[in-house]
Design a protein around this nucleic acid. Structure first.
Lengths: 216, 216, 216, 216
DNA sequence: TATGAATGAGACTTCATTCAT
DNA sequence: TATGAATGAAGTCTCATTCAT
């Protein structure tokens, strides 16, 4: 858990503390490249610079590695949003604008950019993982968004559209980004214009949900 | 086996006269349920009511089955959109409204509802498949949409936003549907409200891109 | 089940019918030689003249092979005893004498001679197998013997000793045979004298349980 | 590792002054519970309260532990019998009665009750262990018994039956006890009646080998 | 064309053993 | 002496693919 555990007396144990993280990073790279089924433990071990048996000192199974990996990354990012929402000032439209920028920046970069594809691709094999992701990421994010929308509507800023739908529609183009970037962009001549995409999304979306012309 | 060396995607469109449509249907069902890696030829054979060996009379490999299957479905629906666009009358907003309804209806039902998950999940193993899908589905649909947007802008109906982005933003919530329905809906207490989602999308999106309040 | 199934039309399927038996025999040889844990499926496959994968067409697991193997042999011999008991004439001592001869002859020869060692050795790993053997072999044999003893006692031929103990004491020296032969005899200079052992057993045992000097 | 090339069985009797008696006790418990193959050094180390590496400071290998363990226990009880025989008074039948009581008491209790199963079960993997056991336990016990029988026959107390067989027949029901108790009793509703078994054995056996009605 | 028995490469996982600390 | 992290060989089991019938 701690990135710098106490290693006062036990110098040689630092390796043990670091191993899971190293393995997880190696696993992440391999899973991202191959998917769960095609990822071989040999690859993970080689990439982590250990032998295959070592993996089993830290994880019970290939599945356990995968789940742990997903779990850790999912956890990390959820604080950010909440903090931002608490601290917001100004219009709700501006808040959404801020949120979209933040989320887009994260979701367009490794490692997060690979997660939607992994989650979606392995959702049949690991239904509980999809459930976990739904609960810990999607659902929470949606709740935050719905709350913002509701308050924006109460404040007379947003038009009366079911907040749940509004939340989904706010997210959809953001979810589109990692899917497009990982699945299709490699086959396209021109790079995906993230900034333009997000900007256009906000332009259209905010104008779409506001009574008044939203501020730029 | 095949006398043609290159396994180009064009090949998939042959064999229209072959009987093993049943095989492809069985394969589709199994691939959808298990994903490519976990699908077993035994299952496909059993579901098709033939022996495992028979499959190899019609397909070179498991991969070939998968590609062929994807290819066929992709082909099927691409005519519809073009026809609709050609025949449209009235405002471009109304056309988009029509298109969204059409696409949503298709993409929310089997078999199409399963395709995005399959394509996305297997895009690493079959990059050429993603490329093919991009080319034959995404790209063409986008082109049609961009054309509509351009003409709407020329007609002074739509605001000047880069048509490519507009197209992506029109599609994103529609792509969201099959992903949500196949990956997350099974874990949610309440069903996904397709009609409400599409309606809200059009409401927001059209208001967002039009100069004037769009017609309901 | 049938040693000669119908192979009127399906000549090439005879192999399939014969396989389980062949595999079981190969497995028996290997299990006897190595014990369960040290037996390798490679060895069994090689001895049966098939590839390793073929085994799994007929058995679910290594355990399944072992259990099936034990089960078949156990079944085979149990008819004999019952038949003999039904048809007996003369004194009960003579019947026991007959039974001992029959059982000794069987238990001293392969394959049966190896079973007690296998059952005993693997009883921790396969408790249910010991239970099965207890129920299907030990218990039934004991019941038959107890019935004989009871009737011999009612007829005034045998002394009143708890029949259950008498049955165990009748069996003990017979169980001693395969254990001694498989575990210790290989390390002894002289061969185990089966005939002398059984003869001495009957001599002592029958004299021990009868009121009168038993007939020779 | 060891400076002595031959791993003769004599070696086992050394190290009497070593502390790792605890290790052997832990090993005994684990071997008894799991058998040799399924016993893990982790378990032994854990039960002994040391680390796995520590085991290798005292033993060369898993096999060495097993052999050492067997050797020690086998040693322990062999004195008893000899002492008893030397000191006997009265009839030989009474001596046998005494011996049977003594042996039964020991062989029916842990740890000895587990040994026959272990020896028998692992006799293929460790043939030299069976040989050792044969030599140090079986053979010596048999020799003592044969001597008693011979003297009983010379004294006109016992009938002229080959002493070797008599010895085996005296032992068989005693060997039956630990086998039955460890292999089958766990699956039976009623407990094994040790006293009754031994009593019936002596009743039948002594009557069977004596000219005269043996004393009760 | 159709079968289905057979193959064999390859994957995950276990665990006795080693060695730096 | 003691540790315990690391190793790597070996074993079971799976399944796409082949081929005799």
């Amino acid at each position: 858990m701690s990135t710098e555990g106490d290693h006062s007396l036990v110098r040689w144990r630092r390796r043990k503390d670091a191993r899971p993280q190293e393995l997880l990073e190696a696993a992440f790279a391999v899973f991202v490249e191959k998917g769960f089924a095609d990822a071989r433990l040999d690859d993970i071990a080689a990439k982590a610079g250990v032998s295959k048996g070592t993996i089993y000192l830290y994880f019970d199974s290939k599945e356990a590695i995968f789940k742990d990996m997903i779990g850790r990354v999912a956890d990390a990012k959820l604080e950010l949003v909440s903090q931002l929402v608490e601290a917001h000032q100004g219009s709700f439209a501006a808040l959404l604008r801020q949120l979209a920028g933040l989320m887009a920046a994260h979701i367009a970069q490794p490692p997060l950019v690979h997660f939607p594809r992994l989650i979606i691709g392995e959702s049949r094999r690991f239904p509980e993982l999809a459930a976990f992701y739904l609960e810990s990421a999607i659902s929470r994010a949606r709740k935050v968004l719905m709350r913002i929308v509701e308050r924006g509507q109460e404040a007379g800023e947003f038009r009366p559209i079911p907040p749940r739908h509004v939340a989904h529609l706010f997210i959809s183009p953001l979810l589109f980004v990692p899917i497009y970037k990982t699945v299709f962009e490699p086959h396209e001549p021109e790079a995906f214009d993230l900034a333009g995409h997000v900007s256009a999304h906000l332009d259209i979306f905010l104008r779409g949900i506001c009574f008044q012309e939203p501020p730029q």
